[in-house]
Simulated assay, not measured.
Amino acid sequence: MTVNRQWLINGRPNGRALVVDDFKWVEGDIAAPGEGEVVVRTLYLAFDPAQKGWMENIGGYTAPTEIGDVMRGSGLAEVVTSNSPLLRPGDRVTGMLGWRDFATLPAKDLLKLPDDGPPTAHLGVLGTTGLTALFGLQKIGKPFPGDTVVVTGAAGATGSVVGQIAKIGGCKVIGVAGGAEKCRWLVDELGFDAAVDYKAGDIRGQMREHAKGGIDVLWDNVGGAILNDLLGEIAMHARVVICGGISRYQLGQMPAGPENYFNLVFKRATMEGFILTDFIGEFPWARRRISAWMRDGRLRFKEDIQVGLENAPRTLMRLFEGANFGKQLLKVSEGS
């Protein structure tokens, strides 16, 4: 515990793709914990497309970043030193750690993990990924048994959970993903009713084969042309849930408005976005419900694990290349 390797924000990737030079590698000291603080060793980091937006200071729902800040990121860590009665050395926690080996943080800002189940699940299906899927679907999508639910980015961490929860609720589920392998995984392993490969082209034509009565709930993680195409296939009184916009994150700018948006009027449909923290008071019961589905085998998850803190920038870039298969994680250290 003498050197703390860190990645700092070194650029604003507005209007362009990320490059390695947007980050700066430095080595420094480990800050001593003050009253109520702990020092934690990072074991795993989690990656989400929104991290690029944080670097751009787009959206306004999180505190702005500055050039020279430690790159923000959530992760799984082990407590090394504690000046708080809330946590002891050896405890496993999750929280906003940043891209670094060690973080000195208030104990109250970290979530102590139970001993049961795989710890990395708390960075995905039991963390923001699963919570986003559950609340967005139930609060905004409001599916009924028998509804046709379509999920874009369906082989990603959030989309794959959305589809499985919709199946648990008795819906017909169609995933949109890139490539035959991902589409097979959705159908053969997760139980989706069908999958559309956007790389094969003619998304609307493919969708019409599987959603003959139209789309009742459209969950969108992508935006851009795919959202536009699917808005043309919504059913009467459809609910469109806007969760993410991977096409926007890559370019760093807002895409043009979808040409088919007026179908919302023709179909008397709604389109609504949300931020997960809108439902923070309900997180405990949601985690219990997701845990129960995992125990009885109705909810499965996949992790894509890269290795080495030095590879953090490249790991984030994988999200925008469609290279990740499941929740994107980076293993930083083994822990004790």
Rank of each mutant, 00 (worst) to 15 (best):
M207A: 13
A195R: 06
D220M: 13
I203V: 15
D220K: 05
Y198G: 03
N228R: 00
I203T: 11
E209Q: 14
G214Q: 12
G223M: 07
V196G: 10
L218S: 09
G223E: 09
A225Q: 14
D229V: 09
G205E: 07
R204E: 15
A211W: 05
Q206D: 05
A194M: 01
A211D: 05
H210P: 02
A200P: 07
A194Y: 01
K199W: 11
D202V: 02
H210S: 08
M207N: 04
N221T: 03
R208F: 00
V196A: 12
A225R: 12
Y198C: 08
G224P: 03
G205S: 09
V217Y: 07
L227A: 06
V222S: 07
D202L: 02
A194P: 02
M207R: 06
N228Q: 07
Y198Q: 06
V196F: 08
N221L: 10
D197Q: 04
R208W: 01
I226R: 02
G224R: 04
G224K: 05
I203N: 03
D220Y: 13
D197F: 08
I226N: 01
D197K: 06
E209I: 09
K212L: 11
A200Q: 14
A194D: 11
A225T: 13
A225L: 06
D216F: 03
R204F: 00
G223Q: 09
A225P: 00
N228S: 11
N221W: 12
N228T: 11
W219D: 08
L218Y: 10
W219F: 14
L227Q: 09
L227V: 07
N228Y: 09
I215W: 04
L227N: 09
V222F: 01
G205I: 00
Q206C: 06
D197T: 04
D202W: 00
G224Y: 08
K199C: 10
A211Y: 04
V196R: 13
A211L: 05
A200K: 15
I215Y: 13
G213A: 14
V217T: 10
N221S: 15
A200V: 02
N221G: 14
G214S: 13
R208G: 14
D202Y: 02
V217E: 07
G224I: 09
